[in-house]
Simulated assay, not measured.
Amino acid sequence: MAIEVGSKLEGKVTGITHFGAFVELAEGVTGLVHISEIADNYVKDVNDHLKLDDKVTVKVINVDKDGKIGLSIKQTIEKPADAPRPERFNRFEGSRPSGSGAGERPSRPSGFGGAGGGDRGGRPGGDRGPRGDRGPRGGGFKNPAGKLTFEDKMSRFLKDSEERISSLKKSTESKRGGRGGRRD
């Protein structure tokens, strides 16, 4: 019987490595079950799932020109067609997909920040430091809701970034002897 992609065959585990297991098929042909094709869940150690001389059912997933055979154990396991898929987090909405049922978070109106309504530090208004309620240039550049606008946050970021870069340049130049300094 010829080994064809998509066929399910019986085999015996003949070798186990950190990256998968070698399975001997009919006619003495050996193929590799990669660690990612052993089980549906994460496989940290192949030895937790397979032992030498185990009889396994494998599916041929590829046959290379040089004779290497790629096998899969997890693709032989029948999954019920009506099994619910796990819900994925929608990073743009900050909630589960609409219609997901119980536990669904209400969507926020546009213009509101992340969790807690402030910046990542949990401080309200997106203020990151001792500047108080001042905007990036010292004037009060907040919208009526008391939040900094995107443009204000960007200009504050650019200003802080330029200050950090200039101080970094100063410190590295002083370590090298300044601009155009001689090295003896």
Rank of each mutant, 00 (worst) to 15 (best):
P80Y: 09
P144L: 11
G139R: 11
E93T: 11
G70H: 03
L158V: 10
G15L: 10
K44H: 14
S98D: 11
G103Y: 07
S161C: 06
T14W: 02
K51E: 11
G20F: 02
K175C: 02
G94M: 05
L9N: 03
D184R: 09
A81T: 12
V33R: 01
M1E: 10
F112A: 12
T17Q: 09
D119G: 14
P97A: 08
G129N: 09
K55R: 14
G116T: 09
G114S: 15
G70K: 01
T30V: 12
D66S: 12
A26S: 11
T172I: 10
T17P: 02
I16G: 06
N143L: 12
G116R: 09
G103W: 07
L9K: 12
Y42H: 13
S7L: 06
D160P: 01
A21R: 00
G101V: 03
V46H: 02
I77F: 14
G113V: 11
G178C: 04
K153G: 06
A145V: 09
K147V: 04
D82R: 05
S95H: 13
I77M: 15
P109R: 15
D127E: 11
R108A: 10
H49Q: 11
S100P: 02
F141E: 11
K12R: 14
M1C: 04
G122R: 08
K51V: 05
D48R: 12
P124W: 15
E151L: 08
E162A: 11
I73V: 11
G181A: 04
G101N: 04
K159G: 04
M1S: 10
K55T: 13
G20D: 03
K153N: 07
D48V: 03
N47S: 14
S36C: 05
R128L: 13
A145D: 12
G126F: 00
N47I: 08
R182A: 14
G116I: 07
L32G: 03
R134P: 00
N62G: 12
R182S: 14
R164W: 01
A26T: 07
I77K: 15
V5W: 01
G20Q: 03
G121F: 11
V58K: 00
L71I: 02
D127G: 08
D54N: 15
I38G: 00
R134D: 07
G180L: 08
P84W: 05
I77V: 15
E104I: 05
I73P: 00
G101W: 03
R88G: 04
L52W: 04
E78T: 15
P144G: 13
S155G: 00
G111W: 01
D82T: 10
R131V: 04
L148Q: 12
E4V: 13
A26P: 02
P130V: 10
G28N: 10
R164A: 04
R123G: 05
D53T: 07
P136V: 05
F92T: 09
I16L: 12
R123P: 00
K79N: 10
V23I: 15
G135I: 03
E162K: 04
K55N: 11
S161L: 12
